[in-house]
Amino acid sequence: MTPLVTLAVLAAAVTHASWNAIAHHIKDQLLSFTLISGGGTLIGLALLPFVPLPAAEAWPYLLVSAALHIGYMALLMRSFTLGDFGQMYPIARGTAPLVVTALAALFLHEVPDGRQLLGVAVACAGLTGLALWGVRGGDGGPRWPALLAAGATGLSIALYTVVDGVGVRASGTPLGYIAWLMILEGLAIPAYALWTRRTALLPQLRPYAARGLLGAVLSVAAYGLALWAQTKAPLAPVAALRESSIIVGAALGTLLFKERFGAARLAAATVMAVGIGLMLTAG
């Protein structure tokens, strides 16, 4: 990866953790994701006059990705409802590069070398530690619904990462691809919110509008940078470096939400970061 691509992915990691923190901070998750998804759609529409139309070969990937992103948003809302931000975010994001590595090797023939495989194993160890010791209920045992929601979120991230990695390369225009992706994926949650909340929706949204729209801007920037990077480098190292956002997420959980970091979570997050570093330096 070139320094410019590395810088872009690191910027994507910081902006991604930041918009997730904003989403978690708005306690009514449906309102939070209505603003972020709806704001993303507005940004996509604003970009349309200035970007080329993606090539025809990219549209099947765009449609599949939009469906996967809608599922991801629903799972992420569930994860943030069930658990702490500093716990759910690392599990969800830490799962993704492991699955992306396998899928990229299987479908795109981007086969990892020995160091990358070692990185996968080390990151898996950190993820397991975080799952076993980082998410506990009142009885001291793991909160399995929260773990399952975060793990499913990570799987959805991996799936749309691979789909978008192929789609954006076929599109010929990363900006056009992200604009249409934001439009296609961003309507579902606002439509559901309008159907369930009806006339109460607008007054409920108003107090959170500024934060939610800021989250939308950060969300589009984060994924736009990641998509551009996927046109310049193999998927696995891009996914691995992007998930350095788990460190940012853990720090934000402590600073903004007063969540206890704890020695076990620190150790597990550190092991995951080492594994991601090994994947990044492979090749």
Rank of each mutant, 00 (worst) to 15 (best):
K27P: 01
P207N: 12
G151K: 05
A13N: 12
W180A: 09
D139Q: 08
V5Y: 07
A226M: 15
L175K: 09
L252W: 13
V217W: 07
P142K: 09
G140N: 05
R197K: 11
A193S: 10
P190A: 05
G126K: 00
T153V: 01
A66P: 10
G277I: 03
L252R: 10
F257Q: 05
L278G: 07
I276K: 00
A251S: 07
R206Q: 11
A170G: 01
V274C: 13
V217R: 06
G137C: 11
V51E: 01
G165I: 04
M1I: 07
Y61W: 15
V248L: 00
S32T: 07
L213S: 05
G83C: 06
L159W: 02
D113H: 12
A188W: 15
T81N: 12
V162W: 02
L132A: 08
M279K: 06
G167I: 04
T153G: 11
T281G: 09
S171N: 07
L278H: 06
S79E: 01
L280P: 02
T101P: 01
G224V: 13
V100N: 08
V100W: 08
W133M: 04
T6G: 13
G186N: 05
Y160S: 05
G38Y: 09
L75W: 04
A191K: 13
I36A: 07
T196S: 14
R143C: 03
V14F: 13
L184P: 04
G40Q: 03
S171P: 10
Y208C: 04
I183R: 03
T153L: 00
L213W: 06
G119M: 08
R115M: 14
M279P: 00
Y61H: 14
L75S: 11
H69D: 12
R242Q: 08
K27H: 13
G262S: 13
T196Y: 08
S156F: 11
Y208E: 11
T153E: 02
S245C: 09
A158H: 04
C124Y: 10
H24T: 03
V111A: 07
L201K: 06
W180F: 13
L213T: 05
L278I: 12
P90T: 03
S171L: 09
V100E: 06
L76C: 06
G114M: 12
F85S: 00
